[in-house]
Simulated scan of single mutants.
Amino acid sequence: MTISKKSIFNIVFLIAVFALTLYGVFHGQDLGQIVACIRQCDIRYWIVSICFVVFFVESESVIIYYMMKRVGQDHIKFSHCILYSFVGFFFSCITPSATGGQPAQIYYMKKDKISIPIATVILMIVTITYKLVLVLLGVGVLVVRPEAVMHYLAPVIGWCYLGILLNCFCVGFMLLLVFHPTMAKRILFFGLNILFKMKFIKRKEYYEEKLRKSMEQYSEVAVFFQENSRVVFNVIIITIVQRFLLFFVTWLVYRSFGFKEHGPGIIMVLQGMISVAVDMLPLPGGMGISEQLFLQIFAPIFNSFCLPGMIVSRGLSYYTELILSAILTIVAQLTIGRRKDCKK
């Protein structure tokens, strides 16, 4: 019942945010003129953009598969890792602050006989590196303060600082959990005691034993990554490539309108700073705020085509990802663990 209510809340919240976003973007606008501007685009750039979105999602599959092999999960298929990634991005896109992605991935990994502690640590490292790239980008821009970039960021600089602060806190806390298993164990047992005192659980000893066994496996995996820094370094490199694949979509959209004045570097950095600002906000996919920041930052670059440019950019980088992820999530539901269930 609780899960059902939570799902209903997420759906209603998503629809409400989407409706408000549509109203905020299109209120008072000439829809015919917007459509006419979009029709002028070179759709060849859109096709390349969709390929980059797919590569962006599948880059996480490479990371998951690579780490699974490193921790001895040799039975995992790469095709299933692709499905894990699309499942994660789908639930991240529709839940506030992307909180639904990892639990959904762990659910399907468990169906593939991957223990929850192993899945948790691997996905935590994926999340850490994913957010760490944003932190490095944001801090780098605000420390170096390149004039060409800061000129466009001036209207939204407060959002950038907030995003960096929230991401730094999140990355720091998760690093503590992964690389200080003892602290993670204390936090979990502390939470278990609170649940027992509040009478949410009754068999305290039973859950303590289960938690202790899980933490032993969790600690083993965490120690492995501590002792194999090369693995983490490789994951960071792949994540950097992954992130900039998506940022590059905005430049492809820029080119699809026939613009040539700005190179990919500055547009990718500006799009990256939007991700820095909205990544930790409690909105599904940064919906609403991402559109507004795009319009403020890119207005001098896209000029009168800024609104059509934002529609195409968000349509390709977010809504295309959402639709593809939804389709592959259905595939995951129909395939992962299905054959084993049929045999039983």
Rank of each mutant, 00 (worst) to 15 (best):
T2R: 13
L14G: 08
L20W: 12
L31M: 12
Y45L: 08
W46E: 07
I47Y: 11
V48M: 10
V48H: 05
S49R: 03
V57H: 00
S59V: 05
V62H: 02
Y65A: 00
G72H: 03
Q73G: 08
I82V: 10
Y84F: 06
F86C: 03
F91N: 01
I94N: 00
A98W: 03
Y107C: 00
I114V: 11
P117A: 05
I122F: 01
G138H: 01
V144N: 06
Y152R: 08
G158C: 06
W159T: 09
I164S: 03
F169W: 07
V178Y: 01
F179L: 03
P181Y: 00
T182R: 13
N193W: 07
E205H: 12
Y207M: 05
R212Q: 13
M215D: 08
V223Q: 13
E227R: 14
E227L: 07
N228K: 07
V232F: 07
I236V: 12
I238R: 06
T239V: 05
V241D: 05
V241E: 08
Q242V: 05
F247C: 09
L252V: 08
I267D: 11
V278N: 05
V278E: 08
G288V: 02
S290Y: 07
Q292N: 14
F294V: 06
F298H: 10
A299Y: 11
F302T: 09
S304A: 14
F305S: 15
F305P: 15
S313C: 12
T329A: 01
I336L: 02
R339C: 14
